[in-house]
Simulated scan of single mutants.
Amino acid sequence: MSIPVVDFSAGSLDVENISNADLHQLSRGLKMAFTEVGFVFLENTGITQAEVNRVMDVSRSFFLQPDHLKRPFSRKTFPNSPNHGWVSLETESLNPQKPGDLKEAFNLSSLHPDIKWPSSEEVAGFQEIQTAFFHRCKELSLRILRVMALSLGLDPDIFLNTHRLIGTDENGTTLRSLYYPPVKSELAKEGQLRCGEHSDYGSITLLFQSDEGLQVCRRSGEFICAPLVPGAVLVNIADLMQRWTSDHFLSVLHRVLLPPVGNSSTRQSLAFFVQPDDEAVVSCIDGSDKYPPVRADVYLIERFNHSYGRT
């Protein structure tokens, strides 16, 4: 099955302005996508392509700098938020069974006023542009979480209540700018990918892409190519949400392959990884014991340890 496309116009309105018919149709569309595929394209979210391009442009300027200018902003050098900062090429293996991924990243995981930001002339506006987009994605994510709860017949605030601290150091939500540099596929290590097969860790993920390349795993085990839908946001379920819903919503594997031989193009994407508040305990909302309760921050750290080769 292909990835559904759903009009999110109704989700952008205040509750009192949404007709029951529109809300029902939107809820039904999200529920079908997340129970059958795990991914959905949302159109008319309010986030414009111009906003996405602005973040990608300033991110690309950062990534194209020499490594010695990026190194002072490396991940694990920020005490308030260890996940914040630059991740160099081949540092992370999202599939730990394979060589390091052929990508760079900059994680915006903290808005703490003492955080040090790139501020050279080459990346003018980096902090302001990244921070503004973080808030735009946060706003959209909360609207999506509310409709997801409604689609399951639950209290509309059930997920919102555990995502109140997004943007603070008590929540691991991250805006991740990703840069895939040119690569000669024939020189890559055996099994190496631009981004190894993995499922995401938290509640949901918002993804904005510059080019095709993402592949999503179907229930059959076959990987299908995710198309580009201009102006749409690609949203997927992550692992904690699958646990929360007792496998009702599906968190599925996805990856980014190497480009074909002879293709030296770069690729960019922006991923907004939505996490529950650190101290939130995720347990099955249907009252079952299909998964044991787990604290959000404990689960996140465990997954990071796998991706970065630590036990």
Rank of each mutant, 00 (worst) to 15 (best):
Thr45Gln: 12
Thr45Phe: 14
Thr45His: 14
Thr45Lys: 15
Thr45Cys: 15
Gly46Gln: 14
Ile47Met: 10
Ile47Arg: 08
Ile47Phe: 12
Glu51Gln: 15
Glu51Asp: 13
Val52Thr: 11
Val52Phe: 08
Asn53Ala: 14
Asn53Ile: 07
Arg54Trp: 09
Arg54Ala: 15
Val55Ile: 05
Val55Glu: 00
Met56Ala: 07
Met56Asn: 07
Asp57Pro: 04
Ser61Ala: 11
Ser61Pro: 02
Phe63Asp: 00
Phe63Leu: 03
Phe63Lys: 00
Phe63Gly: 00
Leu64Tyr: 13
Gln65Arg: 11
Gln65Asn: 01
Pro66Glu: 07
Asp67Phe: 14
Asp67Glu: 13
Leu69Trp: 01
Leu69Tyr: 06
Leu69Phe: 11
Leu69Thr: 02
Leu69Arg: 07
Leu69Gln: 03
Lys70Gly: 01
Lys70Ile: 07
Arg71Gln: 12
Arg71Met: 14
Pro72Cys: 08
Phe73Met: 03
Ser74Tyr: 07
Ser74Thr: 13
Ser74Lys: 15
Arg75Met: 06
Arg75Thr: 00
Arg75Ser: 01
Lys76Asp: 06
Lys76Cys: 07
Lys76Gln: 06
Thr77Arg: 07
Thr77Trp: 04
Phe78Arg: 02
Phe78Thr: 03
Pro79Leu: 11
Asn80Leu: 15
Asn80Met: 15
Ser81Asp: 01
Ser81Thr: 06
Ser81Glu: 05
Pro82Gly: 04
Asn83Asp: 01
Trp86Val: 00
Trp86Cys: 00
Ser88Arg: 15
Ser88Phe: 07
Ser88Gln: 10
Ser88Ile: 03
Ser88Thr: 13
Glu90Asn: 11
Thr91Lys: 12
Thr91Met: 06
Glu92Ala: 13
Glu92Pro: 08
Ser93Phe: 14
Ser93Pro: 07
Leu94Met: 10
Pro96Trp: 09
Gln97Pro: 00
Lys98Trp: 05
Lys98Gln: 09
Lys98Thr: 06
Pro99Met: 14
Gly100Leu: 09
Asp101Ser: 09
Asp101Tyr: 09
Asp101Ala: 10
Lys103Cys: 04
Lys103Asp: 00
Lys103Glu: 00
Lys103Trp: 03
Glu104Ser: 13
Glu104Met: 15
Ala105Asn: 09
Ala105Asp: 01
Phe106Ile: 01
Asn107Ser: 06
Leu108Gln: 04
Leu108Glu: 00
Ser109Phe: 02
Ser110Arg: 05
Ser110Leu: 05
His112Asn: 10
Asp114Phe: 06
Asp114Thr: 12
Asp114Trp: 06
Ile115Asn: 09
Ile115Ala: 12
Lys116His: 12
Lys116Glu: 11
Trp117Ala: 02
Pro118Gln: 07
Ser119Arg: 02
Ser120Asp: 13
Glu121Thr: 12
Glu121Phe: 15
Glu122Ala: 14
Glu122Asn: 08
Val123Pro: 02
Ala124Pro: 05
Ala124Glu: 05
Ala124Ser: 13
